[in-house]
Design a protein around this nucleic acid. Structure first.
Length: 361
DNA sequence: GAAATATTAAACACCC
DNA sequence: CGGGTGTTTAATATTT
């Protein structure tokens, strides 16, 4: 995979003040919005690397209207756990909060992570809840969300799964952090979770593509650069319910007979813990923050990165090479040069419900 | 049994 | 040119 633009490797200016790739105002907006939702923005990770500049939020010189940020030691957090890389260059981190993966506690297997790499960076905003999370949490075993979870997906042997192709595709897409997958990743997910397809006749891939094309539940979104061929496929939100109903119509064969049924419209949570949660409609805190993360990424790496993020923003970005982009959903086009990324970011913030401040004059 | 839905196969175009 | 992707059509199977 081609390294993302802006990836570290060069040597950006050291020190918090030397280089501030993000407009402070936007950082403030993001942080404020996150704070208003009862959390605090802690850090942002891309592919495991912190890219935040949120320490600049503390800058009083430009911050008169900013809510008082949490002191860097307030919550202890896991500062000690931060990899050394977190602390170099412009990637200083605030280490005062507790981890909270706003990408919905995804239980990624190693292969999931590998898959994810190909569609873009894993984006994690870490925040803390100032108030206890509304969801009553099961007394949880030691959380190892992203590290070798007890591999759920050794599912159903090598028999043909009882799910229709549309369900399989649906599950694959829903299981993706970004809720969007290229067809190749859909294949991979299916094979990984249903080994039957590893040796199934090749026609099934045709069926998958056929289903994607024909089924109104699935939408193609803009092709992503660096993905190779093809587009990202998403689930049409309007048809999501019908897909969930389809689950209800399908046998759920995977749970042992003595275990209580996982719920009518859900895959076996033991086998698909993350997916089951998501499909069960559990609240997914952090959507706004996620968009905020997209904002930051857009500014850091350029608008093209948005194509590799979830389609939630519904931004239509023309993918003309040569760095020329136009946007619908923002305030019209015509952005040029340096303002463009900012406009993208602000459009995202607006879509995320974060009011945009008028630019200081 | 009919209709709806799903599966499978195949052909073709497009693009990289 | 080859292979992957996406679309479309058609036949068949299964479910409702």
């Amino acid at each position: 995979m081609a390294p993302m633009r802006g990836e570290r490797g060069g040597s950006p200016a050291r020190g918090a003040r030397a280089s501030l790739p993000l407009p402070r105002r936007l950082i403030r907006q993001i942080a404020r919005h996150v704070a208003s939702s009862g959390r605090s923005l802690r850090r942002l990770e891309v592919s495991g690397r912190v890219i935040d500049n949120f320490d600049d939020i503390d800058d009083a010189s430009d911050d008169s209207d900013l809510e008082t940020p949490q002191p860097a030691v307030a919550c202890g957090g896991n500062a000690g756990n931060l990899p050394p890389a977190d602390h170099d260059d412009d990637l200083t981190s605030l280490s005062w909060l507790q981890d909270r993966n706003l990408l919905r506690g995804i239980n990624l297997t190693k292969s999931d992570l590998e898959d994810t790499k190909s569609i873009g960076s894993q984006v994690i905003i870490k925040t803390e809840s100032k108030t206890p999370p509304p969801m009553a949490r099961v007394p949880s075993p030691p959380r190892t969300p992203c590290k070798a979870p007890p591999s759920p997906p050794t599912v159903t042997t090598h028999t043909k799964p009882p799910y229709s192709f549309s369900c399989l595709i649906f599950m694959a897409i829903e299981a993706a952090p970004a809720r969007a997958l290229p067809v190749k990743e859909i294949y991979a997910w299916i094979v990984r979770h249903f080994p039957y397809f590893k040796h199934a006749p090749q026609g099934w891939k045709n069926s998958v593509r056929h289903n994607l094309s024909l089924n109104k539940c699935f939408h193609k979104v803009a092709a992503a650069p660096g993905l190779g061929k093809g587009s990202l496929w998403t689930v049409d939100p309007q048809h999501r319910a019908s897909l969930l109903q389809a689950f209800g119509r399908q046998p759920i064969p995977t749970a042992p007979p003595d275990t209580p049924p996982p719920g009518k419209n859900a895959p076996d949570p033991q086998l698909f813990p993350f997916l089951a949660r998501r499909l069960a409609g559990e609240p997914e805190p952090g959507a706004d923050e996620y968009l905020a993360a997209a904002t930051v990424l857009a500014m850091k790496y350029g608008p093209a990165v948005l194509d590799q993020l979830p389609p939630a923003a519904h931004l239509v970005i023309s993918r003309c090479a040569r760095d020329e982009h136009s946007y619908s959903g923002g305030g019209g086009g015509g952005a040029a040069g340096g303002c463009e990324e900012r406009r993208t970011a602000e459009a995202l913030l607006n879509l995320a419900g974060v009011p945009s401040e008028p630019a200081p004059s």
